[in-house]
Simulated assay, not measured.
Amino acid sequence: MLELEHGFRIVDVGVRLDPDQEAVTRRGRDITPERLERELHQAGVVRAIVAPGPRESGGYLRLNNAVARLSVDRPFMAFARLGGPRVPDSSTLGRVRNLAVKREPYHADPEDVEQYAYDDRFHGFLLDPAQDGLPESDVLEMLAEVGSPVLVRGGVRFPPHAVEEFVLDYEFPVVLSGFGGFPLNRELMGAAIELLSAHDELYLDTRFVRFRDPMERALREHPDRVLFASGAPDSHPDVAVMEILTLDVPEDAMRRAFSKNPGRVISGLAGSE
C-alpha cells in the first residue's frame, strides 16, 4: 500500500507482535517485526504499543520478554500480558467458581506485576480476561499501586458492565479495547461510551470498531478519552488510519485521538505535535 499523507503525528495503542513462528502460525498472518514496523511507518505511525497475542495455555513470561527484546531499536513500546485464574462472570455460578480457584504458577501474581512495572523494557500491561482469565484482587491492587496504564480487551465475553464490576474500582488508567464491543457489537460500544461519564480513569481505543457512529459520538462527547488503535497486524494500519480520517469530526478531535490523548495516558508516547 502507498504511504499515507495526512499531516498528523500518530501513535498506536493496539498492535500485536508475534515473537515466534508458533504464534505466527496459530494466529494466521505471517508478518515479521520488520514488516510490521514498515507498515506502521507507511500509515504515519511513529510509536506503537505492542503486546503478545493469546496463548492456548500457560503463562506469558517468555512471550512478554520476547516482545520486549524485539522492541529494542524499533518504535515499539512493550506491554506485559497477564493472565489469572478467575472467570469474569458475576453470576452466582461464576462467584462460586471464583471462590474455589487456585492460582497456578503461570498465572500473574503481585510480584510479577512489580517486576514488570520496574523493568524499563515494559510500559504497561494487557489484560484479556475472556481469553486468559482474570487476575486475583491482590494482582489488581498491585496494578493500582504501581499506577501503570492497563489495556483491557473487552467484548461480548467481557462486556463493559463486567469491566466496571471487576476492574474499574481499582485506581489505574484503563484503556478499553474496541470500545468494549468486539466483535462489532453496537450495543456494547454504546454502553462503554456511557461509562466514560462515571469513570475518569477509563479510556476507549478504536481497535476494530469499524462503525462511524460510535466513534463520532465518543469523539464529540468525550474528545479527551478516545485513543487510536489499529489492531495491526490483523488490520492494516493504513485502513485503521483512514477510518479516523473519514469521520465527520473536527480536525482537533482527530489529533487528540491520534496522539494527544495517548500521550497523556501512556508515558513515552507524548511528543511534539
Rank of each mutant, 00 (worst) to 15 (best):
M1L: 12
L2P: 15
E3P: 09
E3S: 14
G7V: 09
F8M: 08
F8K: 06
I10L: 07
D12P: 02
D12H: 02
G14Y: 02
R16T: 15
R16V: 15
L17P: 04
L17T: 04
L17Q: 06
D18Q: 13
D18E: 14
D20S: 15
D20E: 12
Q21T: 15
E22A: 15
A23R: 13
T25R: 14
R26T: 12
D30N: 10
D30E: 08
I31K: 09
E34D: 15
R35K: 14
E39F: 07
I49V: 15
A51Y: 15
A51P: 00
G53I: 01
P54I: 09
R55W: 01
E56H: 09
S57F: 11
S57A: 12
G59Y: 09
L61K: 11
N64C: 10
V67H: 04
V67I: 10
A68N: 08
A68H: 05
D73P: 00
M77T: 03
F79V: 01
R81N: 06
G84I: 02
V87A: 11
V87L: 13
S90Y: 12
S91H: 10
S91F: 11
G94Y: 11
R97H: 11
N98S: 12
L99Y: 05
A100F: 14
A100V: 11
V101L: 04
K102S: 13
E104H: 08
E104W: 07
D112W: 14
V113L: 03
E114M: 08
A117S: 13
A117Y: 03
Y118E: 14
D119M: 13
H123K: 10
H123R: 10
L127N: 02
Q131N: 12
G133K: 02
G133H: 06
E136N: 05
D138L: 07
V139Y: 05
E141F: 00
M142Y: 03
M142F: 04
M142A: 13
A144N: 05
A144W: 04
E145G: 00
G147P: 10
P149Y: 00
V150F: 03
R153I: 13
G154A: 10
V156C: 07
V156P: 02
P160C: 09
H161E: 14
L168R: 08
F172C: 09
F172L: 11
V174F: 04
G178A: 12
F179P: 01
F179T: 01
G180Y: 03
G181S: 09
N185L: 00
M189V: 04
A198G: 07
A198W: 10
L204K: 00
L204A: 00
V209M: 09
R210E: 14
R212I: 03
D213I: 05
P214W: 02
E216G: 03
R217N: 01
L219A: 08
H222S: 02
P223S: 12
D224M: 02
D224P: 00
L227P: 01
F228V: 03
F228K: 01
F228Q: 01
P233S: 07
D234Q: 12
P237F: 03
P237N: 03
M242Q: 14
L247H: 09
D248G: 04
A253T: 05
A253V: 06
A253P: 03
A257H: 03
A257M: 15
F258Y: 11
K260Y: 13
K260N: 08
N261I: 07
N261K: 07
G263F: 07
G263Y: 10
I266Y: 04
G268Y: 09
A270D: 15
A270K: 14
E273R: 15
